[in-house]
Amino acid sequence: MRDCEKPEPNIAPLCLLLLAIFVSCPAIAEFQVSNIEPRLTKTTLHVTGILDLGLSDKAEEALSKGIPLDIVIDLSLSKKRTFLWNDRISMWIIRRNIRYHALSGQYLVIPDASESDKPAIESFSSLQEAMAQVGNLDFDQLELSADKLQGDNDYVMDVRAYLDIARLPAPLRPVAYTSPAWHLNSGWTQWNVLR
């Protein structure tokens, strides 16, 4: 994995920093939505899937130094329309936190508050396992109002996962905003909803 070089922040003139916003090496690590299987019942949406979440070296380093990272998973359910853009029915924002516990050497994964069926903290001895757990989607019951699901319409689910820079510590945000190593975002991917 290739490292992304950045100018030294304490001595770099502002112009070079601004230039770095636009001209910088691409991040190797990236978030990808590997597979999503949304399945719709009458009023419940079941979503299972796997997200390949790879942290950049900078993010790994920050994590190992005790900086907690928030991974946000956006799920959006829309009704397919032929001639118009899809009609969004509902959207869920899943926020999972990963942090490093120095004393035990464990990576701790704290699920979203809505994931009540999961332990408050899950510990993993390796980062890969922890990230795999973060990227593991298994939502059995995402509630939907019945009036939004009408007829036999086709539905699609848009999924996106990204590192929430805004939740980083404030001193780190200028670096994160100006460095592509911190811009980890899978972008929106669309998946057909099974019924």
Binding site: P9, A62, K65, G66, A102, P171, R173, P174, V175
Partner: peptide, 18 residues
């Protein structure tokens, strides 16, 4: 953890101030 975080944030903090 707090010290490590602060030590790590030293660079970004200087960058932010700079």
């Amino acid at each position: 953890a707090e010290y490590e975080k602060l030590a790590y944030l030293r660079g970004p903090l200087k960058f932010g101030f700079t």
